[in-house]
């Protein structure tokens, strides 16, 4: 093979389609990256699914959870999950979702036990993440469920009792339907002239006055 021909072949190889993110290109292995060991994965694999897949061994009671909650959680979330200041409220709110003031809590809004369990396991207590033992984690989640009257005072949460927990708002969600319910917004020929009667101002941000005083010069320069 002549040198110029092999150069052409080499340059063709270099221009492999993956670079262009060609979706039809056959996958190519680059030999880059190591095999992840089970131990490496186990240390980071902390997610839990609605069916309980991924839940760790261990258990915790409502009673034990109350102590942990008062110690580690109540300062922000309130003794009864009512929230202190602007921190998330964890309890109550039942029957408010269709009102003018919906209160979204574990009991009123979260669809699955895993949605709260997985979150507490990875992110709580705020600023001291992943510091709870598995038993403490089960206990504190059991207590939050109890605050919401989802489990009774004697309940012990574990992998085994996982499926007994029924969240009140499990059926409160539906898949994104904008392309159907908002089909009218697909209108590539919108009105350009005399589209509505003369317009009136119906609300002013300045009246509400909640904009931070950022000292941006806001005065117009016109006399």
């Amino acid at each position: 093979m002549s040198r110029s021909v092999s150069l052409i072949i080499a340059s063709l190889l270099l221009a492999s389609p993956v670079l262009a993110q060609d979706k039809k290109a056959p996958p190519r292995s680059y030999g880059i990256g190591q095999v992840a060991t089970p131990a490496q994965i186990a240390g980071w694999d902390i997610d839990v699914r609605p069916d309980g897949a991924g839940a760790p061994p261990g258990k915790g009671s409502v009673k034990d959870g109350e102590k942990i909650y008062l110690d580690r959680c109540a300062a922000c979330h309130g003794e009864f999950g009512e929230s202190a200041g602007r921190w998330p409220q964890l309890a109550q709110g039942k029957g408010t979702l269709a009102s003018n003031d919906p209160v979204k809590t574990v009991g009123s809004y979260f669809p699955y036990l895993s949605s709260v369990f997985d979150y507490v396991r990875r992110a709580m207590p705020f600023g001291d993440a992943q510091s709870l033992s598995n038993d403490e984690l089960y206990a504190v989640v059991a207590f939050v469920l109890n605050l919401n009257d989802i489990v009774d005072d004697k309940f012990v949460l574990s992998k085994e009792t996982w499926s007994q927990v029924k969240m009140p708002n499990e059926n409160g969600f539906y898949d994104d339907d904008r392309e159907k319910s908002e089909k009218a917004f697909w209108n590539s020929n919108p009105c350009m002239k005399d589209c509505r009667p003369p317009v009136k101002i119906t609300g002013h941000a300045a009246v509400i006055d909640v904009t931070p005083e950022d000292k941006t010069p806001r005065k117009g320069g016109v006399e």
Binding site: V48, F110, D118
Partner: peptide, 10 residues
């Protein structure tokens, strides 16, 4: 299937 984490539910 999806996980239904807190960030995609609550």
């Amino acid at each position: 299937k999806p996980w239904y984490t807190r960030e995609e539910t609550a």
